[in-house]
Design a protein around this nucleic acid. Structure first.
Lengths: 215, 215
DNA sequence: TATTATTTTTAGTTTTGCCTAAATTTTTAG
DNA sequence: CTAAAAATTTAGGCAAAACTAAAAATAATA
């Protein structure tokens, strides 16, 4: 697979988690910052290679082969993110772009040795699960902070939005994966939350609460 | 720079260490397993970008800018090789191809953090020097085993040929970087050497002796 | 249902990096 | 010094992956 093909497969994978019935040409174009006509060209090629099943005008889904390939790319991306944060001391808002390049390095042996070196992590620095060498993904029962019950203690386990703006906001508020969070009050007018984080009190907007996963 | 451009710059760098007056089109084509006409095309482009100075039929040399770029690519290649051997437990004959891919990852920050993580190594697993962040290269006075004096102790510090066949031969004979080597006898007929390595005696062909650096 | 509006595909180009074949320049040898 | 050999460049093309503009299919709405 070329780098371009891998990028398409990865995007189709992420989009199909949201729309499993078939991914739109335009949605793919949007994610890859390219034009719909270019997407159509590539879908034909990926279909030839039996990585996707594609019927004109009907959207696209991954074949088993495409699905496995996608998970291997995601595996590489997330393992490299762990490496960058845990070993090279990058912060969690700096690693995405570098991992976008590293995920295309070919050697399977490399990625399995990296996995071992990192002690077989199950989650990346943003709390997203890392597929193992067989493509299996550990699921956890996480929910958004906005969906939690009042006065019950949760633990922060991931972010939905992993833009550097959001991650830097969390850093500023000293909210990290592992932080204990309890919602004390909910303002019904704008859904602002009053929360206790570790030992601090904090007011959190609905937008933030909709992008933070807890369990 | 594209990956292809980087590969040309790197090859021109290596060849210009041997022929500093100008590198031949055919020599570049040979190293990159491509055709002379393709090389000509690329030399024009690199010349446009002021990475090389190139005059038709007269060979090519790197500009200062091209020379610095080349050293940064070599730096990345060799640092990744150290990482693969020291941290991921690859053997020295397996790392070249993977490093050929890793050397094209763009982030400068990444490579400097990797350098720090590895404790600023000066040499790669094959004994080749690693340029520092400024492009400076530590020189050592090494010579080929075939050029040594009889009954004088040397230390193995590098290989000239780093093909996996040669490296695996050295592994089999338990010759590693750091091994102490003394030439006891030299057979004048075929230049075969009788050497003492650490505490063993070994007969070594001229071909081997011409590819092993000692100091 | 008819007719817009939107989405998607087709057709035709562009750029990058490669190719072959032919022409040109440089080098080597008689 | 000239002719043959070797090296290099030019010319013309191809495939991948993108693009624009136009056509076709599907979806939305009056």
């Amino acid at each position: 697979m070329t780098i371009s093909e891998e990028n398409y497969i990865k995007v189709i994978y992420h989009l199909s988690l949201v729309s499993p019935k078939g991914v739109n040409t335009n949605a793919i174009a949007g994610m890859l910052d390219t034009k719909a006509s270019s997407v159509t060209d590539m879908l034909k090629k990926l279909s030839e290679k039996e990585l996707v099943s594609y019927q004109k005008y009907q959207g696209v889904t991954l074949t088993d082969k495409g699905f496995y390939s996608a998970k291997m790319i995601v595996r590489k991306h997330r393992l490299w993110e762990v490496f960058l944060v845990d070993k090279l001391n990058f912060s969690w808002d700096e690693v995405h772009e570098i991992a976008e390049e590293l995920e295309h390095i070919k050697s399977e042996n490399l990625i399995n040795k990296l996995d071992a070196f990192l002690d077989f992590p199950s989650f990346d620095p943003h709390g997203d699960p890392i597929p193992n060498a067989d493509g299996e993904i550990k699921k956890i029962n996480k929910l958004l902070l906005s969906e939690t019950e009042l006065n019950k203690e949760y633990q922060c386990v991931g972010v939905k939005d992993s833009s550097s703006e959001f991650l830097q906001y969390l850093d500023k508020q000293k909210i990290a994966l592992g932080s204990k969070i309890t919602v004390k009050e909910k303002e019904s007018f704008d859904d602002t939350l009053l929360v206790q984080i570790d030992s601090r009190q904090l007011t959190i907007s609905n937008k933030i609460a909709n992008n933070l996963y807890v369990k």
